[in-house]
Nucleic acid binder design. Sequence first.
RNA 1: GGUCCCAUCGUCCAGAGGCCUAGGACACCGCCCUUUCAAGGCGGCGACACGAGUUCGAAUCUCGUUGGGACCGCCA
Length: 445
Amino acid sequence: MSFKTRVRFAPSPTGSLHIGGAHTALFNWLYARHTGGTFVLRIEDTDKERSTAEYEQSIMDGMRWMGLDWDEGPDKPGEFGPYRQSERMDSYTKYANRLLDAGLAYKDDGAVLFKVPTGKLVTFDDEVYGHIEVLSENASVNQDGTIKDIVILKRDGMPTYNYAVVIDDCTMNINMVIRGEDHIINTPKQLLIYQALGFEAPKFAHLPMILGKDKKKLSKRQGATSVFEYNDLGYLPDGVFNFLALLGWSPKNGQEIFTREEAIKNFDLSSVTKKPAVLDMDKLNHINQEQMKIMDPYKLLEIIKPFWKDLGFDISSYSDDYLAFSLQTMGGRGQTTLQLAEYSDYFISFDAVKERYKADDINEEHRPVLKKFYGELLNAPDFTPEALEAFTKSWVETNESSMKEVALPLRWALTGRKVSPGVFEVAAQLGRDECRRRLAYYDLV
RNA sequence: GGUCCCAUCGUCCAGAGGCCUAGGACACCGCCCUUUCAAGGCGGCGACACGAGUUCGAAUCUCGUUGGGACCGCCA
């Protein structure tokens, strides 16, 4: 018997895709891909006031940015569509009538309410949290503790969340519901509706919350809002992906830096943790850096290009080969794409160097020595890092100089920075002519 | 207040009764390499919330306490 997994990510288009939503979407995606199942994107736009088409678009763009593709959704018709709740009104009224006819629901002020039964023990076995049971009269209560019947159709005719999810998950054949832990408390209410309708409930897997530094639930105001902000801050989709995957989960083999393929292969719902996780930007930085290291240099280049442009650099005269190798030469320095773009600016702009470095630290007594050395260095037969370094080492020895004395000023003249990759690697990448130009500008050759 | 959930280094995770004088990663600190570190190497600091049980033996099981979180909308 073949059983195909069907999971869904069901955001409401009342805001962009934020980090918590991305986390939930990611785990659904991982589960679907790991099991070879189907990942459905359903838009829960029953709040007519706050839902917008722009947010819906933004959420989808955010998911695409993260590399989370869905198999069925508003833009990808499938046999269980439509995929916006606002377009599924027929089923909501149909089942509401069924409940009404059975005497399990009633109308009040134009709304339809589901009558919460008493004395029933509602239980379910969460894939992450284990066995959970709640007395039906405790499933939905007012602030004062009295039973509160569940509104299923609002006065405006739209279904409420707890009702629409049940109808949709059921009619869309969703068999595994993976969502945030904040919904664990809603599950008994939904289960009551499943039972009243005679539906078979899906399995549930709740995910631990992601908390801010203050250990409070991440709100729209707190921390970054949309995942796109992470892009602007310099984070790779792969970095955010890897980082988020590690919040509440870790592969059995202990690997921390992994590709999407590895994550899919190793993903396992049973090893998801229950404890809420605090978002740690330091860790994100580190993972992002590691992801930049293993990323294909030409792909990384395409991501870096816009940052260089934003920084005001014109890179049109450089080949992709030169640019990509320049990034390679950076040797893993920089934690974000933004930093990488900044740190590597001397490969694409001498103006940036000139702005930073005025050569006023050059001791005039030493200038002749430097000129002599750089003059010879520029004429080195082989302009490779190894050859340049070997040449320099022997030169400082025979001329009673030191590496520090000649290499440090060279770094300053070439990069305008105190810190850089090995200066001979930088020189080789810049090329003989460019090195000559820069040294000449500072009157060092 | 009520209901539900959670509880291992500052943070993220390992740990599913003896392998734990609790392991890894990030951060932090120190050392090393080197022409520099924003790269690399090595090391250090640092936790089982508390109390009762159960057991020959508990971070792991049970109960309680404490602490934290979520939810209590005709929002989702």
